[in-house]
Simulated assay, not measured.
Amino acid sequence: MTTPVQAFFDPATWTVSYVVYDQVGGHAAIIDPVLDYDPKSGRTGTRSAQQLVDFIQAQALTVDWILETHAHADHLSAAAWLKRQVGGHSAIGDRIGTVQATFSKVFNLEAGFASDGSQFDHLFAPDEAFAIGTLAARALAVPGHTPADMAYHIGDAVFVGDTLFMPDVGSARCDFPGGDAAALYRSARALLSLPGETRLFMCHDYPPPERQPAWESTVAEQRRLNIHLNDTVTEAAFIAMRQQRDATLAMPTLILPSVQINIRAGEMPPKDTNGVAYLKIPLDLL
């Protein structure tokens, strides 16, 4: 049976969010939702997230989960806003505390900030089984891009986060705090050991000029064609490529605002004494 998946592409951040569900009128999970953010003005918006709400309401779906594959560095999460609109339990991998502890120091966050993942409703252990209505699902630990990355195997589909990109783009960077190219290689090979027909859904696409954005592949296609992780690439070759490539990459445009929000499960920082919430910009640190 083909698992129903609806994708929503955000051209501002090259992010793909998903609603995966068991049937019309049934149960659903939201994966990697985007909160609009204008870095020039500091204003947030919900245009992108509202598209998910409209689809969920049109299909008469009950939201069980709002799943994050990791604490993203390239877009702000709309998880908290969506939870208030359509319900559902927010969830992420159980190593998120490692990421929170690292970035709480980077941003010198408030004394009451907890680095234990308690901002999320649920923390998935590696290989933990769960359900979305009648759909069987499993959380797969795929560290490498960050220590806390998770992929979600739901029915015949796997939502891979930043572990894999489309075959002509390859793989995600591993130079963020806690990143590890060897771990990413092993995580990717674990995903690519699934049956060849397994559908893989990317969190981002950064397409070359000759094609439009795309986000669905298969295990078989990735094993044949992925420019970084096809079956001919050894772990040593991947690590050398990733280290050389990562050394040339600039920081993502939204890393400073997004991480501060995303380690809080999409909530804003506490408001200051004037009633306004502020983000911090550490100087000369990253």
Rank of each mutant, 00 (worst) to 15 (best):
W81D: 02
D127H: 11
D121H: 11
F159V: 04
T98E: 13
A71Q: 09
S77W: 04
F120Q: 10
Q119M: 14
I92G: 01
D94F: 07
R95P: 00
A148P: 02
A129R: 12
F107N: 12
A136H: 13
L123K: 06
S90D: 12
A91N: 05
H153N: 11
D94V: 06
Q85V: 03
A80N: 14
V99P: 05
D121W: 12
H153Y: 14
F120E: 08
Q119K: 11
A148R: 02
S104E: 13
D149K: 08
T146S: 11
I92L: 03
A111T: 08
L76D: 00
A73C: 15
G112A: 14
L140P: 02
G97Q: 04
L67S: 06
I154H: 02
Y152P: 00
A157W: 00
F113E: 06
A111Q: 12
Q85W: 01
A91Y: 03
T134R: 14
A73D: 15
G93Q: 01
T102E: 11
S77D: 00
V158L: 12
A101R: 09
A125L: 12
G88F: 07
A78H: 03
A141P: 04
H145S: 04
A78K: 04
A73N: 15
A91Q: 05
H153S: 14
A157N: 02
H153V: 06
I154Y: 01
I154E: 01
V160G: 01
E68H: 08
R95W: 07
A71K: 01
N108K: 14
I132M: 08
I132W: 00
Q119V: 13
I132K: 03
G87V: 02
I154K: 00
K83I: 02
F103E: 04
Y152K: 02
L135D: 02
H70T: 06
V158A: 09
H70G: 07
A71R: 03
R95D: 01
L67F: 05
A148E: 10
L67C: 05
D156S: 07
D149T: 15
I92F: 00
T134F: 06
P147A: 07
L123W: 07
L82C: 04
S118T: 14
G144C: 05
D127T: 15
G97H: 06
K105W: 06
F113Q: 05
E128L: 09
V160P: 01
Q100K: 08
F103L: 05
L109I: 09
S118W: 10
